[in-house]
Simulated assay, not measured.
Amino acid sequence: ATIGAFHGKSMGSLSATSKVIFRKPFLPLIPGFRHIPYGDADALEKEIASAEYTGEDIAAVILEPIQGEGGVIIPPDDYFPQVREICNRYGVLLIADEIQTGMGRTGKLFGIEHYGVVPDIMALGKAFGGAIMPIGAFISTKEIWEKMTPNPFLHTTTFGGNPIACAAAIAAINVTLEERLPEQAAEKGNYFIPKLIDLMSNYKNICAEGRGRGLLIGMEFTSDEAGYEVAKGLFERGVLVAGTLIHAQTLRIEPPLTITKAEL
């Protein structure tokens, strides 16, 4: 996993999450996780090579296509292609955490598509349930799924695959594709983000950077206090924004993919 990563707060996902404030109360967590700088393929290769040398082989690398809670951090364009090549060379699985970036949010159906890379495993959630039903999905290759064939009861769950949640997810997929929501997100992001960056440039005393892809957008401020005041002012005007759990100086703007240009 990486520094700045957020993958959840249950025991397994919390082990991959990086922020001490969430991790420390529940230590010890699942052993074997290592955290390296995000966007640094050289650091990844050094970590994998070191682990292999000492006999502690790495099973998988889990990454967000864009770090959401970390502050809407977009990696270099060549980062994921390099990661894919490194994983192939060392026999390591690549897991794409698409919980926030999936289902069209970044202008592609899946965020990983921006980099022309196919992961071994994808995790879906949040928008996957159409904002109505809580549902997540583990998506993988035939080769990996076949490991479950000898005993499919190795991993089961009482409410897993329940029909109501699955119906909501299928409907969400259909609407996302039929209404071309990824394309809408890309178009609206290309319209909104430059205007946001231009606006923030007028307030350099409190604004550090505006960035984003599609409709996953971040406003980074020079201090937490500045971000809080801006968020408060937006709330008072009926505009809801979200903070980030890892990088508190950044506010996220994540409007519905169906938002109109007039509303933007």
Rank of each mutant, 00 (worst) to 15 (best):
D120Q: 03
D120M: 01
D120H: 13
I121K: 07
I121A: 03
I121L: 08
I121R: 00
M122Y: 05
M122A: 15
A123C: 02
L124I: 03
L124D: 07
G125Y: 02
G125S: 15
K126C: 00
K126R: 12
A127Q: 14
F128W: 05
G130K: 07
G130R: 06
A131E: 14
A131N: 15
I132T: 09
M133L: 01
P134T: 04
P134G: 09
G136V: 05
G136P: 13
G136Y: 05
A137H: 12
A137W: 06
F138G: 09
S140M: 04
T141L: 05
T141K: 13
E143S: 13
I144K: 09
I144D: 11
I144F: 15
W145E: 11
W145D: 04
E146W: 10
P150R: 05
N151H: 12
P152I: 13
P152M: 14
P152E: 10
P152W: 06
P152R: 14
F153I: 10
H155R: 06
T156H: 10
T157G: 13
T158W: 14
T158V: 13
F159E: 13
G160Y: 09
G160H: 02
G161V: 04
N162M: 06
I164S: 10
A165T: 04
A165V: 02
C166G: 00
A167S: 13
A167F: 01
A168E: 14
A169W: 08
I170L: 10
A171Q: 11
A171L: 12
A171D: 13
A171W: 12
V175H: 12
V175T: 13
T176N: 13
E178Q: 12
R180F: 07
R180Q: 15
R180A: 13
P182S: 02
P182E: 06
Q184K: 15
Q184H: 07
Q184M: 10
Q184W: 12
A186P: 03
A186M: 12
G189K: 01
G189E: 02
N190M: 03
N190C: 08
Y191D: 08
Y191S: 01
F192Y: 14
F192M: 08
I193N: 08
P194W: 07
P194H: 06
K195I: 02
K195H: 07
L196V: 08
L199V: 03
M200I: 09
M200H: 05
M200L: 15
S201R: 11
S201C: 11
S201G: 08
K204C: 11
K204L: 10
K204F: 00
N205R: 03
N205L: 08
N205E: 15
N205Y: 01
I206F: 12
C207Q: 06
C207P: 00
A208C: 02
A208H: 04
A208E: 14
E209H: 03
E209V: 05
E209L: 04
E209M: 07
R211W: 01
R213E: 10
G214N: 10
L216M: 15
L216P: 07
I217R: 00
I217E: 00
I217K: 03
G218K: 09
G218I: 06
G218Y: 03
